[in-house]
Amino acid sequence: MNNHDHRSAQVKTPSIYPTKTKAQITIIFFIVIGFYLYSMVKTQQEMVGGFNNAISNMWNVMLKFFPPNLEVIGAVWPPMATTIQMAIIATTIATILTIPLALLSAQNITTSKPLYYTTRTILNILRTIPDLVLAVIFVGLFGIGVLPGILALIVFSLGILAKLISETIEAVDMNPLEAMRASGANSIQMIAYGLVPQVLPQFTSFVLYVLELNIRASVVLGLVGAGGIGLILDQQLGFYNYPNAMTIILVIFVVVLTIEYISNKIREALI
């Protein structure tokens, strides 16, 4: 959009960009717009009543959610607690599993090319699968409950965490590790003494970040039967009990914001 305005404003002056670039940008711009319009048409095909209807409809529905029924807060808390607990367990286990994986997928530590590429590829594939899809599969395997939820979160966060941390490891100053090798230290000692102090602050910060992600993700896991607060949200919506659902949504909202605030504070203190 802005791109376009930018260009037309320049027409008045002798152009500072080559004509070819301008033509390219124009073409790309129209393709993007075209694709957008097409997407809009496609996605609205099945919509009954058209757009205007939707807006008034939306407003009416929104009204149904208010006021939230705050009396159910007591009942909302236990599944919310479960949700947080799932996220904490998953983050903890993922953090432990990440350590070897991150080392294996860091080029400066893992000198074996096949090993490095295998780990990288597995992690890359893991990262393409959305958390909820993992949850669906684990529910298929383990049945409904918190265990499939935790497993889905572990696998999901493993891909992200290992990538972030392996990138940190690759950016590390290798000189002290060489000095330790030269003085007869073994690989584990080199990692513990030369690597760990260099990556620890970043590591902690990333773990907190993944905890945030996991809390957000675990909130909706219940929708597919993988435990936590999503389950009762799904139920309440199913019963058209919108004020109750709104309370649940508010609780989620507050918890997510609180966790984000706390982990931001810790991160600031770390760096």
Partner: peptide, 28 residues
């Protein structure tokens, strides 16, 4: 902005499905 970010995508989707019906536009 941070209030918007606190809503998981799927929760928003649920709200919009209720509002505009079961279709792809709710997703958009």
């Amino acid at each position: 902005l941070s209030a918007i970010r606190a809503f998981p995508n799927l929760i928003l989707a649920i709200l919009f499905v209720v509002a505009v019906g079961v279709n792809a536009f709710a997703g958009v």
